[in-house]
Design a protein around this nucleic acid. Structure first.
Length: 205
DNA sequence: CGTTCGATGCACT
DNA sequence: GTGCATCGAACGT
């Protein structure tokens, strides 16, 4: 079932925690792609220096101030789209950045998208690297500008509860930011091969 | 193993 | 003009 708007209309850290194990689905012309969310990060309010809303309400950050359950998609470093789920009541700027998925449906489509424009062949991608990292997962699912402000509770890009059960949770510092690094607002499935960041110590045999 | 660094577009001041 | 919520190739150890 698709997550209802009330799921997102809650404290952002709770939403981030509960998004682990849910499924991001994109139904596109090329076919359906989906994956289990195994890593995400909370960005909360104008007082969070890493949150885009710290710059106040601008054309870029307007989606953060909008109603919960919508997508905030933006373009970064000149080459990557990043997708967030907007949380909390309208007027309260906050969101959860989706950082990694375990691929479920459409793995071959993901391979083709990831390989496009590279020298690497599609079949060279291992499943767990297809959606590891926020820029990689949007590439694999074909998420772009057009999805900004889209409704995650209905339409082509949605988040579903497929009853996959509970996952072990780890919390830590957010990755790739230069300010607000003290807040432990990153949630992930410890040791999962699709999780981004430095390889876990426990990976050694 | 580890770290560094270039590519690349755009919103914002 | 500046600075990114990144990625992966290219180094050094």
């Amino acid at each position: 079932m698709t997550l209802p708007r009330s799921f997102y209309d809650r404290p952002t850290l709770q939403v981030a925690r509960d998004l682990i194990g849910k499924v991001l689905v994109h139904r596109s012309r090329a076919g359906d792609t989906s994956g289990v969310i195994v890593e995400c990060e909370a960005y909360i309010g104008e007082e969070d220096p890493a949150c885009h809303a710290s710059a106040g309400r601008t054309r870029r950050t307007a989606p953060l101030y909008g109603p919960p359950g919508h997508a905030y998609v933006y373009f970064n470093y000149g080459m990557h789209y990043l997708v967030n789920a907007v949380t909390e009541a309208e007027g309260t700027p906050a969101a959860v950045l989706l950082r990694a998925l375990e691929p479920l449906d459409g793995v071959e489509i993901m391979r083709r998208r990831r390989a496009r424009g590279t020298l690497r062949r599609p079949e060279a991608f291992k499943p767990h690297e297809l959606c590891r990292g926020p820029g990689n997962l949007t590439c694999a699912l074909g998420i772009g500008r057009a999805h900004n402000l889209g409704d995650l509770t209905s339409g082509g890009l949605v988040i579903e509860d497929r009853g996959l059960g509970s996952f072990p949770l780890g919390w830590g510092q957010r990755i790739g930011i230069r300010v607000g690094t003290d807040r432990p607002w990153r949630v992930f499935v410890p040791g999962h091969p699709a999780v981004s960041g430095p390889p876990s110590r426990s990976r050694r045999a």
